[in-house]
Amino acid sequence: MIASDDASLVVDFLNTVDIERGLDALADAAKWRQWTEERGLGADPLPFAREVRESLRAAVGDPHAEPARLTVPLAVELTTGRPALAATNAVAAVLAAAVRLTVRDDWERVKICLADDCRWAFFDQSRNRSRTWCSMRVCGNREKARAWRERRSPSNELPTDQPVDNSGSVDN
Rank of each mutant, 00 (worst) to 15 (best):
R146Y: 01
E143R: 04
E51G: 04
P67L: 09
P163M: 03
L85A: 11
D161P: 01
V60S: 08
G22V: 14
F123T: 02
G61N: 03
V94K: 06
R119V: 11
N172K: 12
D28Q: 10
L101A: 10
N89Y: 10
R104A: 15
G61F: 01
V11R: 01
V99I: 15
G140V: 00
D161K: 15
L74M: 05
G61Y: 01
E77Q: 09
K111Y: 15
R82L: 10
E38T: 07
G81K: 10
L158F: 04
L101T: 15
D24Q: 06
E54K: 03
A59R: 15
T132R: 14
N166I: 02
P83D: 06
K31I: 03
G168A: 01
N156C: 02
P67K: 05
V94D: 02
R129Y: 03
P47G: 07
D165F: 09
R137H: 10
R127Q: 14
C118E: 02
C113T: 07
A115D: 08
A121T: 09
R146V: 00
R137Q: 15
F122V: 05
A27T: 05
S55T: 15
V11G: 07
A3L: 08
R146P: 00
Q34Y: 00
N156G: 02
V60G: 05
C139F: 01
A58I: 08
S126N: 08
L46F: 10
P163Y: 02
G140T: 01
A93W: 05
N172D: 15
A7K: 03
C113M: 03
W133L: 02
V11W: 04
P154C: 03
R146D: 00
V72Y: 08
T88Q: 07
N141E: 08
T102G: 15
